[in-house]
Design a protein around this nucleic acid. Sequence first.
DNA 1: AGAGTTATTTTGACTAATCAAAATAGTTGG
DNA 2: CCAACTATTTTGATTAGTCAAAATAACTCT
Lengths: 220, 220
Amino acid sequence: MATVAVENYLKHVLLLSDGAEELVPMGSLAAALAVVPGTATAMVKALADDGLLEHQPRLGVRLTTRGRRIALNVLRKHRLVETFLVETLKMDWSKVHAEAEQLEHAVSDEVLDRLDALLGHPRQDPHGDPIPSRAGKIDSQVYATLATCATGRRLRIVRVTEQSEEFLRFAEGSGLRPGAELSVTERNLVSGLVALDRPDGGTVALGVAAAGKILVEPRG
Amino acid sequence: MATVAVENYLKHVLLLSDGAEELVPMGSLAAALAVVPGTATAMVKALADDGLLEHQPRLGVRLTTRGRRIALNVLRKHRLVETFLVETLKMDWSKVHAEAEQLEHAVSDEVLDRLDALLGHPRQDPHGDPIPSRAGKIDSQVYATLATCATGRRLRIVRVTEQSEEFLRFAEGSGLRPGAELSVTERNLVSGLVALDRPDGGTVALGVAAAGKILVEPRG
DNA sequence: AGAGTTATTTTGACTAATCAAAATAGTTGG
DNA sequence: CCAACTATTTTGATTAGTCAAAATAACTCT
Ligand SMILES: [Mn+2]
Ligand SMILES: [Mn+2]
Ligand SMILES: [Mn+2]
Ligand SMILES: [Mn+2]
Protein backbone atom coordinates (compact mmCIF):
# COMPACT_ATOMS: atom_id res chain seq x y z
CA MET A 1 0.00 0.00 0.00
CA ALA A 2 0.98 3.57 -0.58
CA THR A 3 2.21 5.39 2.54
CA VAL A 4 0.56 8.55 3.85
CA ALA A 5 3.32 10.69 2.33
CA VAL A 6 2.97 9.03 -1.08
CA GLU A 7 -0.81 9.52 -1.03
CA ASN A 8 -0.39 13.17 -0.17
CA TYR A 9 2.14 13.78 -2.95
CA LEU A 10 -0.04 12.10 -5.57
CA LYS A 11 -3.18 13.90 -4.44
CA HIS A 12 -1.48 17.29 -4.57
CA VAL A 13 -0.05 16.65 -8.03
CA LEU A 14 -3.60 15.89 -9.14
CA LEU A 15 -5.01 19.02 -7.52
CA LEU A 16 -2.29 21.23 -9.01
CA SER A 17 -2.69 19.92 -12.55
CA ASP A 18 -6.10 21.39 -13.36
CA GLY A 19 -7.53 19.04 -15.92
CA ALA A 20 -4.69 16.56 -16.22
CA GLU A 21 -2.16 17.26 -18.90
CA GLU A 22 0.05 20.10 -17.71
CA LEU A 23 3.31 19.59 -15.87
CA VAL A 24 3.22 20.61 -12.23
CA PRO A 25 6.37 22.59 -11.29
CA MET A 26 8.37 21.29 -8.35
CA GLY A 27 8.08 24.63 -6.61
CA SER A 28 4.29 24.55 -6.45
CA LEU A 29 4.32 20.93 -5.37
CA ALA A 30 6.81 21.60 -2.57
CA ALA A 31 4.81 24.63 -1.42
CA ALA A 32 1.52 22.70 -1.44
CA LEU A 33 3.06 19.95 0.68
CA ALA A 34 4.90 22.38 2.95
CA VAL A 35 8.30 20.76 2.36
CA VAL A 36 11.52 22.29 1.08
CA PRO A 37 12.11 21.90 -2.67
CA GLY A 38 14.88 19.33 -2.24
CA THR A 39 12.56 17.05 -0.34
CA ALA A 40 10.00 17.16 -3.13
CA THR A 41 12.68 16.37 -5.69
CA ALA A 42 13.83 13.32 -3.71
CA MET A 43 10.30 12.03 -3.23
CA VAL A 44 9.35 12.64 -6.83
CA LYS A 45 12.31 10.62 -8.05
CA ALA A 46 11.20 7.71 -5.89
CA LEU A 47 7.62 7.97 -7.14
CA ALA A 48 8.85 8.10 -10.74
CA ASP A 49 10.88 4.92 -10.11
CA ASP A 50 7.69 3.31 -8.87
CA GLY A 51 5.88 4.35 -12.04
CA LEU A 52 3.38 6.61 -10.26
CA LEU A 53 4.40 9.78 -12.03
CA GLU A 54 6.63 11.09 -14.76
CA HIS A 55 9.39 13.50 -13.84
CA GLN A 56 10.79 15.85 -16.45
CA PRO A 57 13.81 17.31 -14.66
CA ARG A 58 13.63 21.08 -14.24
CA LEU A 59 10.19 21.17 -15.80
CA GLY A 60 7.88 19.35 -13.48
CA VAL A 61 5.81 16.23 -12.92
CA ARG A 62 2.72 14.60 -14.33
CA LEU A 63 0.80 11.60 -12.97
CA THR A 64 0.87 8.29 -14.78
CA THR A 65 -2.35 6.35 -15.17
CA ARG A 66 -1.51 4.31 -12.06
CA GLY A 67 -0.61 7.41 -10.06
CA ARG A 68 -3.76 9.17 -11.16
CA ARG A 69 -5.88 6.19 -10.15
CA ILE A 70 -4.47 6.31 -6.61
CA ALA A 71 -4.74 10.11 -6.40
CA LEU A 72 -8.39 10.06 -7.44
CA ASN A 73 -9.18 7.42 -4.84
CA VAL A 74 -7.56 9.51 -2.10
CA LEU A 75 -9.42 12.61 -3.28
CA ARG A 76 -12.67 10.65 -3.30
CA LYS A 77 -12.01 9.59 0.28
CA HIS A 78 -11.18 13.13 1.30
CA ARG A 79 -14.35 14.63 -0.11
CA LEU A 80 -16.71 11.87 0.96
CA VAL A 81 -15.29 12.07 4.47
CA GLU A 82 -15.85 15.83 4.48
CA THR A 83 -19.42 15.27 3.38
CA PHE A 84 -19.97 12.69 6.10
CA LEU A 85 -18.55 14.99 8.76
CA VAL A 86 -20.89 17.81 7.77
CA GLU A 87 -24.03 15.83 6.88
CA THR A 88 -23.97 13.11 9.49
CA LEU A 89 -21.88 14.52 12.32
CA LYS A 90 -22.99 18.14 11.81
CA MET A 91 -19.49 19.52 11.94
CA ASP A 92 -18.73 23.01 10.73
CA TRP A 93 -17.63 23.10 7.06
CA SER A 94 -14.66 25.25 8.07
CA LYS A 95 -13.14 22.45 10.13
CA VAL A 96 -13.69 19.32 8.06
CA HIS A 97 -10.79 19.82 5.69
CA ALA A 98 -8.18 19.33 8.41
CA GLU A 99 -9.98 16.24 9.69
CA ALA A 100 -10.28 14.73 6.22
CA GLU A 101 -6.60 15.34 5.61
CA GLN A 102 -5.93 12.60 8.16
CA LEU A 103 -8.91 10.35 7.61
CA GLU A 104 -8.37 10.10 3.83
CA HIS A 105 -5.43 7.78 4.61
CA ALA A 106 -7.21 5.60 7.16
CA VAL A 107 -10.54 4.87 5.49
CA SER A 108 -10.61 1.59 3.56
CA ASP A 109 -12.32 1.14 0.20
CA GLU A 110 -14.98 -0.95 1.94
CA VAL A 111 -15.79 1.77 4.47
CA LEU A 112 -15.69 4.31 1.66
CA ASP A 113 -18.38 2.47 -0.29
CA ARG A 114 -20.60 2.28 2.74
CA LEU A 115 -20.15 5.97 3.52
CA ASP A 116 -21.01 6.76 -0.09
CA ALA A 117 -24.21 4.74 0.16
CA LEU A 118 -25.15 6.21 3.55
CA LEU A 119 -24.82 9.70 2.10
CA GLY A 120 -26.81 8.86 -1.04
CA HIS A 121 -23.90 8.97 -3.52
CA PRO A 122 -23.27 12.72 -3.35
CA ARG A 123 -21.62 14.43 -6.35
CA GLN A 124 -20.17 17.40 -4.43
CA ASP A 125 -18.69 17.87 -1.01
CA PRO A 126 -19.71 20.66 1.40
CA HIS A 127 -17.49 23.18 -0.42
CA GLY A 128 -18.95 22.30 -3.80
CA ASP A 129 -15.83 20.36 -4.79
CA PRO A 130 -16.72 17.50 -7.15
CA ILE A 131 -16.40 13.98 -5.73
CA PRO A 132 -14.66 11.53 -8.09
CA SER A 133 -16.77 8.47 -8.89
CA ARG A 134 -15.67 5.02 -7.80
CA ALA A 135 -14.56 4.49 -11.39
CA GLY A 136 -12.35 7.58 -11.24
CA LYS A 137 -14.48 10.02 -13.21
CA ILE A 138 -14.44 13.58 -11.96
CA ASP A 139 -16.50 16.52 -13.07
CA SER A 140 -14.14 19.11 -14.52
CA GLN A 141 -16.57 21.80 -15.54
CA VAL A 142 -15.06 25.27 -15.65
CA TYR A 143 -16.87 28.06 -13.85
CA ALA A 144 -16.51 31.81 -13.65
CA THR A 145 -15.44 33.36 -10.35
CA LEU A 146 -16.64 36.45 -8.57
CA ALA A 147 -13.44 38.06 -9.85
CA THR A 148 -14.14 37.28 -13.51
CA CYS A 149 -17.89 36.99 -14.02
CA ALA A 150 -20.17 39.58 -15.60
CA THR A 151 -21.53 42.20 -13.22
CA GLY A 152 -25.21 42.83 -12.68
CA ARG A 153 -26.36 39.28 -13.51
CA ARG A 154 -28.08 37.03 -11.04
CA LEU A 155 -25.65 34.27 -9.94
CA ARG A 156 -25.55 31.16 -7.85
CA ILE A 157 -22.46 30.05 -5.94
CA VAL A 158 -21.40 26.54 -6.98
CA ARG A 159 -18.10 26.13 -5.20
CA VAL A 160 -15.66 27.70 -2.74
CA THR A 161 -12.08 26.73 -3.64
CA GLU A 162 -10.17 27.56 -0.49
CA GLN A 163 -9.98 25.27 2.48
CA SER A 164 -8.60 27.52 5.17
CA GLU A 165 -10.68 27.69 8.32
CA GLU A 166 -10.58 31.49 8.51
CA PHE A 167 -11.68 31.99 4.93
CA LEU A 168 -14.55 29.54 5.26
CA ARG A 169 -15.73 31.12 8.48
CA PHE A 170 -15.71 34.50 6.77
CA ALA A 171 -17.61 33.11 3.75
CA GLU A 172 -20.18 31.45 6.00
CA GLY A 173 -20.69 34.64 7.95
CA SER A 174 -21.23 36.57 4.72
CA GLY A 175 -23.73 34.08 3.35
CA LEU A 176 -21.30 32.89 0.69
CA ARG A 177 -21.80 29.13 0.55
CA PRO A 178 -22.66 26.83 -2.35
CA GLY A 179 -26.28 27.31 -3.41
CA ALA A 180 -26.47 30.93 -2.25
CA GLU A 181 -27.63 33.47 -4.82
CA LEU A 182 -26.24 36.96 -5.39
CA SER A 183 -24.99 39.43 -7.96
CA VAL A 184 -21.85 41.49 -8.42
CA THR A 185 -22.79 45.16 -8.24
CA GLU A 186 -19.37 46.62 -8.74
CA ARG A 187 -15.86 45.51 -9.51
CA ASN A 188 -12.90 47.88 -9.44
CA LEU A 189 -9.72 46.27 -10.69
CA VAL A 190 -7.67 49.25 -9.64
CA SER A 191 -8.68 49.27 -6.00
CA GLY A 192 -9.14 45.47 -6.13
CA LEU A 193 -12.58 45.69 -4.63
CA VAL A 194 -15.64 43.56 -5.46
CA ALA A 195 -19.10 44.46 -4.11
CA LEU A 196 -21.98 41.98 -3.91
CA ASP A 197 -25.72 42.14 -3.36
CA ARG A 198 -27.62 39.35 -1.68
CA PRO A 199 -31.31 38.67 -2.39
CA ASP A 200 -32.09 39.49 1.26
CA GLY A 201 -30.80 43.00 0.59
CA GLY A 202 -27.51 42.44 2.36
CA THR A 203 -24.28 43.73 0.89
CA VAL A 204 -20.77 42.26 0.97
CA ALA A 205 -17.42 43.69 -0.06
CA LEU A 206 -14.31 41.63 -0.63
CA GLY A 207 -10.93 41.79 -2.35
CA VAL A 208 -10.41 40.46 -5.83
CA ALA A 209 -8.12 37.65 -4.60
CA ALA A 210 -10.82 36.36 -2.26
CA ALA A 211 -13.46 36.83 -4.97
CA GLY A 212 -11.42 34.55 -7.23
CA LYS A 213 -11.93 31.69 -4.77
CA ILE A 214 -15.69 31.73 -5.23
CA LEU A 215 -17.05 29.97 -8.32
CA VAL A 216 -20.46 30.89 -9.69
CA GLU A 217 -22.86 30.05 -12.49
CA PRO A 218 -25.51 32.30 -14.05
CA ARG A 219 -29.01 31.95 -12.63
CA GLY A 220 -31.98 33.52 -14.46
CA MET B 1 1.15 14.50 19.15
CA ALA B 2 1.97 10.87 19.69
CA THR B 3 2.85 9.00 16.49
CA VAL B 4 0.92 5.96 15.29
CA ALA B 5 3.64 3.66 16.63
CA VAL B 6 3.63 5.31 20.04
CA GLU B 7 -0.16 5.06 20.25
CA ASN B 8 -0.01 1.38 19.37
CA TYR B 9 2.65 0.62 21.98
CA LEU B 10 0.77 2.42 24.74
CA LYS B 11 -2.55 0.81 23.83
CA HIS B 12 -1.04 -2.68 23.85
CA VAL B 13 0.66 -2.14 27.19
CA LEU B 14 -2.74 -1.16 28.56
CA LEU B 15 -4.45 -4.21 27.05
CA LEU B 16 -1.77 -6.58 28.33
CA SER B 17 -1.85 -5.28 31.91
CA ASP B 18 -5.27 -6.50 32.95
CA GLY B 19 -6.36 -4.12 35.61
CA ALA B 20 -3.38 -1.79 35.71
CA GLU B 21 -0.70 -2.69 38.19
CA GLU B 22 1.24 -5.65 36.85
CA LEU B 23 4.41 -5.31 34.79
CA VAL B 24 4.00 -6.32 31.17
CA PRO B 25 6.96 -8.45 30.02
CA MET B 26 8.81 -7.26 26.92
CA GLY B 27 8.20 -10.58 25.22
CA SER B 28 4.42 -10.27 25.32
CA LEU B 29 4.58 -6.67 24.23
CA ALA B 30 6.83 -7.45 21.27
CA ALA B 31 4.57 -10.35 20.28
CA ALA B 32 1.42 -8.25 20.52
CA LEU B 33 2.95 -5.59 18.31
CA ALA B 34 4.47 -8.09 15.91
CA VAL B 35 7.98 -6.69 16.25
CA VAL B 36 11.22 -8.39 17.29
CA PRO B 37 12.10 -8.02 20.99
CA GLY B 38 14.96 -5.64 20.36
CA THR B 39 12.64 -3.22 18.62
CA ALA B 40 10.29 -3.20 21.59
CA THR B 41 13.20 -2.57 23.96
CA ALA B 42 14.37 0.42 21.92
CA MET B 43 10.90 1.91 21.67
CA VAL B 44 10.16 1.33 25.34
CA LYS B 45 13.32 3.18 26.35
CA ALA B 46 12.24 6.16 24.28
CA LEU B 47 8.75 6.08 25.79
CA ALA B 48 10.22 5.88 29.28
CA ASP B 49 12.38 8.93 28.50
CA ASP B 50 9.22 10.74 27.48
CA GLY B 51 7.57 9.79 30.77
CA LEU B 52 4.83 7.69 29.18
CA LEU B 53 5.78 4.44 30.87
CA GLU B 54 8.11 3.01 33.44
CA HIS B 55 10.67 0.44 32.34
CA GLN B 56 12.11 -2.01 34.82
CA PRO B 57 14.92 -3.63 32.83
CA ARG B 58 14.50 -7.40 32.39
CA LEU B 59 11.17 -7.27 34.21
CA GLY B 60 8.79 -5.31 32.07
CA VAL B 61 6.87 -2.08 31.65
CA ARG B 62 3.99 -0.27 33.29
CA LEU B 63 2.15 2.83 32.07
CA THR B 64 2.55 6.14 33.86
CA THR B 65 -0.52 8.27 34.45
CA ARG B 66 0.23 10.26 31.31
CA GLY B 67 0.79 7.12 29.24
CA ARG B 68 -2.36 5.55 30.57
CA ARG B 69 -4.37 8.65 29.71
CA ILE B 70 -3.23 8.46 26.09
CA ALA B 71 -3.74 4.70 25.90
CA LEU B 72 -7.30 4.96 27.19
CA ASN B 73 -8.10 7.65 24.64
CA VAL B 74 -6.81 5.47 21.80
CA LEU B 75 -8.77 2.50 23.12
CA ARG B 76 -11.89 4.64 23.35
CA LYS B 77 -11.42 5.68 19.74
CA HIS B 78 -10.89 2.10 18.68
CA ARG B 79 -14.03 0.80 20.32
CA LEU B 80 -16.30 3.70 19.41
CA VAL B 81 -15.16 3.42 15.80
CA GLU B 82 -15.94 -0.30 15.84
CA THR B 83 -19.38 0.48 17.20
CA PHE B 84 -19.96 3.09 14.52
CA LEU B 85 -18.89 0.72 11.77
CA VAL B 86 -21.32 -1.96 12.94
CA GLU B 87 -24.25 0.21 14.04
CA THR B 88 -24.23 2.93 11.42
CA LEU B 89 -22.44 1.40 8.45
CA LYS B 90 -23.74 -2.14 9.04
CA MET B 91 -20.34 -3.75 8.68
CA ASP B 92 -19.71 -7.27 9.83
CA TRP B 93 -18.38 -7.45 13.39
CA SER B 94 -15.62 -9.77 12.21
CA LYS B 95 -14.06 -7.06 10.03
CA VAL B 96 -14.28 -3.91 12.12
CA HIS B 97 -11.24 -4.59 14.30
CA ALA B 98 -8.81 -4.27 11.39
CA GLU B 99 -10.49 -1.06 10.24
CA ALA B 100 -10.46 0.46 13.72
CA GLU B 101 -6.77 -0.39 14.07
CA GLN B 102 -6.11 2.32 11.45
CA LEU B 103 -8.92 4.75 12.22
CA GLU B 104 -8.09 4.96 15.94
CA HIS B 105 -5.08 7.08 14.95
CA ALA B 106 -6.89 9.38 12.52
CA VAL B 107 -10.04 10.30 14.42
CA SER B 108 -9.77 13.58 16.35
CA ASP B 109 -11.20 14.13 19.81
CA GLU B 110 -13.84 16.37 18.29
CA VAL B 111 -15.00 13.72 15.82
CA LEU B 112 -14.86 11.18 18.62
CA ASP B 113 -17.28 13.18 20.76
CA ARG B 114 -19.70 13.51 17.88
CA LEU B 115 -19.54 9.80 17.08
CA ASP B 116 -20.19 9.06 20.74
CA ALA B 117 -23.27 11.28 20.71
CA LEU B 118 -24.53 9.87 17.40
CA LEU B 119 -24.33 6.36 18.85
CA GLY B 120 -26.03 7.32 22.10
CA HIS B 121 -22.96 7.02 24.37
CA PRO B 122 -22.58 3.24 24.17
CA ARG B 123 -20.83 1.44 27.03
CA GLN B 124 -19.71 -1.62 25.05
CA ASP B 125 -18.49 -2.17 21.51
CA PRO B 126 -19.87 -4.88 19.20
CA HIS B 127 -17.71 -7.53 20.86
CA GLY B 128 -18.84 -6.58 24.34
CA ASP B 129 -15.54 -4.85 25.09
CA PRO B 130 -16.07 -1.95 27.52
CA ILE B 131 -15.63 1.54 26.06
CA PRO B 132 -13.59 3.88 28.29
CA SER B 133 -15.44 7.06 29.21
CA ARG B 134 -14.20 10.45 28.04
CA ALA B 135 -12.83 10.88 31.56
CA GLY B 136 -10.83 7.66 31.25
CA LYS B 137 -12.96 5.36 33.37
CA ILE B 138 -13.20 1.81 32.12
CA ASP B 139 -15.38 -0.99 33.41
CA SER B 140 -13.08 -3.74 34.65
CA GLN B 141 -15.62 -6.27 35.86
CA VAL B 142 -14.31 -9.85 35.85
CA TYR B 143 -16.44 -12.50 34.21
CA ALA B 144 -16.34 -16.27 34.00
CA THR B 145 -15.61 -17.87 30.63
CA LEU B 146 -17.15 -20.88 28.95
CA ALA B 147 -13.97 -22.70 30.00
CA THR B 148 -14.35 -21.89 33.69
CA CYS B 149 -18.05 -21.34 34.48
CA ALA B 150 -20.38 -23.77 36.22
CA THR B 151 -22.10 -26.28 33.93
CA GLY B 152 -25.85 -26.69 33.66
CA ARG B 153 -26.70 -23.06 34.57
CA ARG B 154 -28.42 -20.69 32.21
CA LEU B 155 -25.90 -18.12 30.95
CA ARG B 156 -25.72 -15.00 28.85
CA ILE B 157 -22.69 -14.08 26.72
CA VAL B 158 -21.34 -10.67 27.68
CA ARG B 159 -18.15 -10.46 25.68
CA VAL B 160 -15.99 -12.18 23.06
CA THR B 161 -12.31 -11.45 23.67
CA GLU B 162 -10.68 -12.39 20.40
CA GLN B 163 -10.56 -10.09 17.44
CA SER B 164 -9.53 -12.44 14.64
CA GLU B 165 -11.84 -12.46 11.66
CA GLU B 166 -12.00 -16.27 11.47
CA PHE B 167 -12.88 -16.70 15.12
CA LEU B 168 -15.59 -14.07 14.98
CA ARG B 169 -17.10 -15.57 11.86
CA PHE B 170 -17.20 -18.94 13.58
CA ALA B 171 -18.77 -17.44 16.71
CA GLU B 172 -21.37 -15.60 14.67
CA GLY B 173 -22.24 -18.76 12.74
CA SER B 174 -22.68 -20.65 16.00
CA GLY B 175 -24.91 -18.00 17.55
CA LEU B 176 -22.21 -16.99 20.04
CA ARG B 177 -22.46 -13.20 20.21
CA PRO B 178 -22.94 -10.86 23.15
CA GLY B 179 -26.49 -11.10 24.48
CA ALA B 180 -27.02 -14.70 23.33
CA GLU B 181 -28.16 -17.18 25.99
CA LEU B 182 -26.96 -20.73 26.45
CA SER B 183 -25.73 -23.30 28.93
CA VAL B 184 -22.70 -25.56 29.17
CA THR B 185 -23.88 -29.16 29.08
CA GLU B 186 -20.52 -30.83 29.32
CA ARG B 187 -16.90 -29.95 29.85
CA ASN B 188 -14.13 -32.51 29.56
CA LEU B 189 -10.77 -31.12 30.59
CA VAL B 190 -8.97 -34.22 29.40
CA SER B 191 -10.25 -34.17 25.84
CA GLY B 192 -10.47 -30.37 26.01
CA LEU B 193 -14.03 -30.35 24.76
CA VAL B 194 -16.85 -28.00 25.78
CA ALA B 195 -20.46 -28.69 24.69
CA LEU B 196 -23.18 -26.03 24.68
CA ASP B 197 -26.96 -25.95 24.41
CA ARG B 198 -28.77 -23.03 22.86
CA PRO B 199 -32.34 -22.12 23.82
CA ASP B 200 -33.44 -22.85 20.27
CA GLY B 201 -32.36 -26.45 20.83
CA GLY B 202 -29.15 -26.10 18.81
CA THR B 203 -25.91 -27.60 20.06
CA VAL B 204 -22.34 -26.36 19.72
CA ALA B 205 -19.02 -28.03 20.52
CA LEU B 206 -15.76 -26.17 20.85
CA GLY B 207 -12.27 -26.55 22.33
CA VAL B 208 -11.43 -25.27 25.76
CA ALA B 209 -9.03 -22.63 24.37
CA ALA B 210 -11.81 -21.15 22.23
CA ALA B 211 -14.26 -21.43 25.13
CA GLY B 212 -11.91 -19.31 27.22
CA LYS B 213 -12.41 -16.43 24.81
CA ILE B 214 -16.12 -16.20 25.53
CA LEU B 215 -17.14 -14.38 28.71
CA VAL B 216 -20.50 -15.07 30.33
CA GLU B 217 -22.64 -14.10 33.27
CA PRO B 218 -25.33 -16.18 35.04
CA ARG B 219 -28.89 -15.61 33.88
CA GLY B 220 -31.87 -16.92 35.88
C1' DA C 1 26.33 37.78 -24.94
C1' DG C 2 26.99 38.20 -20.16
C1' DA C 3 25.32 39.25 -15.44
C1' DG C 4 22.05 38.54 -12.32
C1' DT C 5 17.98 36.33 -10.67
C1' DT C 6 15.15 32.28 -9.86
C1' DA C 7 14.01 27.38 -9.81
C1' DT C 8 15.63 22.96 -9.19
C1' DT C 9 18.78 19.42 -7.93
C1' DT C 10 22.54 17.57 -5.22
C1' DT C 11 24.93 16.59 -1.06
C1' DG C 12 25.31 15.61 3.64
C1' DA C 13 22.99 15.02 7.87
C1' DC C 14 19.19 13.78 10.95
C1' DT C 15 15.01 11.20 13.21
C1' DA C 16 11.71 7.43 13.83
C1' DA C 17 11.03 2.81 13.38
C1' DT C 18 12.42 -1.32 12.24
C1' DC C 19 15.36 -6.20 11.76
C1' DA C 20 19.30 -9.59 12.37
C1' DA C 21 22.43 -11.36 15.11
C1' DA C 22 25.58 -11.21 19.05
C1' DA C 23 25.98 -10.39 24.04
C1' DT C 24 24.23 -10.68 28.56
C1' DA C 25 21.39 -11.54 32.56
C1' DG C 26 18.22 -14.61 34.99
C1' DT C 27 16.23 -18.95 35.88
C1' DT C 28 16.21 -23.90 36.36
C1' DG C 29 17.24 -28.80 36.52
C1' DG C 30 20.43 -32.07 37.58
C1' DC D 1 26.38 -24.89 42.21
C1' DC D 2 27.06 -25.03 37.56
C1' DA D 3 25.56 -25.93 32.78
C1' DA D 4 21.92 -25.07 29.78
C1' DC D 5 18.11 -22.73 28.44
C1' DT D 6 15.23 -18.52 27.96
C1' DA D 7 14.25 -13.68 27.95
C1' DT D 8 16.03 -9.35 27.23
C1' DT D 9 19.26 -5.98 25.75
C1' DT D 10 22.92 -4.31 22.77
C1' DT D 11 25.06 -3.41 18.48
C1' DG D 12 25.19 -2.45 13.74
C1' DA D 13 22.35 -1.79 9.58
C1' DT D 14 18.44 -0.35 6.80
C1' DT D 15 14.39 2.40 5.03
C1' DA D 16 11.28 6.44 4.61
C1' DG D 17 10.93 11.04 5.00
C1' DT D 18 12.72 15.17 6.06
C1' DC D 19 15.91 19.89 6.29
C1' DA D 20 19.94 23.08 5.36
C1' DA D 21 22.95 24.68 2.38
C1' DA D 22 25.80 24.40 -1.74
C1' DA D 23 25.80 23.54 -6.74
C1' DT D 24 23.77 23.88 -11.10
C1' DA D 25 20.66 24.93 -14.78
C1' DA D 26 17.40 28.02 -16.97
C1' DC D 27 15.52 32.32 -17.82
C1' DT D 28 15.54 37.54 -18.14
C1' DC D 29 17.05 41.87 -19.07
C1' DT D 30 19.91 45.05 -20.81
MN1 LIG E 1 -3.62 13.88 3.80
MN1 LIG F 1 -13.67 20.11 0.18
MN1 LIG G 1 -3.60 0.88 15.66
MN1 LIG H 1 -13.74 -4.71 20.00
